[in-house]
Amino acid sequence: MATAKGNRAAAPTKKAARKVRILVGKPGLDGHDRGAKIIARALRDAGVEVIYTGLHQTPEMIVSAAAQEDVDGIGLSILSGAHNYLFPRIIQLLREKKMGDVVLFGGGIIPDDDIPKLKKKGVDRMFTPGTPIQEIVDYVNERIRPRK
């Protein structure tokens, strides 16, 4: 049915109404959530359903929310310097919950040396300060698909 051509596709027969759902949050102790809010807003404008969980999240809280909301991706803003603990811990928890297919990306003040290490541990992409918002939106559009 999906192969039907022309305006036939517009008929709401068997519609795959899947929307991309992404959790955006801020783990750790720093209280600067402007960046996270801007990303949330930009993703909303790109048609994503953003579950915004706010500040001071522990990895356990983030993964629990991600499971209940059945998200396709998790975007985290970390400015506190605790990224080398927080990201790997979240990946570990995701794997324990058999949620290894959830794409984890992040942004914040992350030293260049740490980025390859985080990627190796399973963080899909890290954005550093100065990244244009559109680049992040393009990344999400390209990389994160709604699950089957």
Binding site: K19, A40, R41, L43, R44, D45, A46, G47, V48, E49, V50, I51, Y52, T53, G54, H56, Q57, T58, E60, M61, S64, A65
Partner: peptide
């Protein structure tokens, strides 16, 4: 609410419910 323009949404109700997250 869903944005009528983009179809996206920001779902922020969990922010106030964090104490029950675990």
């Amino acid at each position: 609410p869903t944005s009528p323009f983009s179809g996206g949404a920001i779902l922020g109700d969990r922010i106030r419910m964090q104490q029950h997250a675990l």
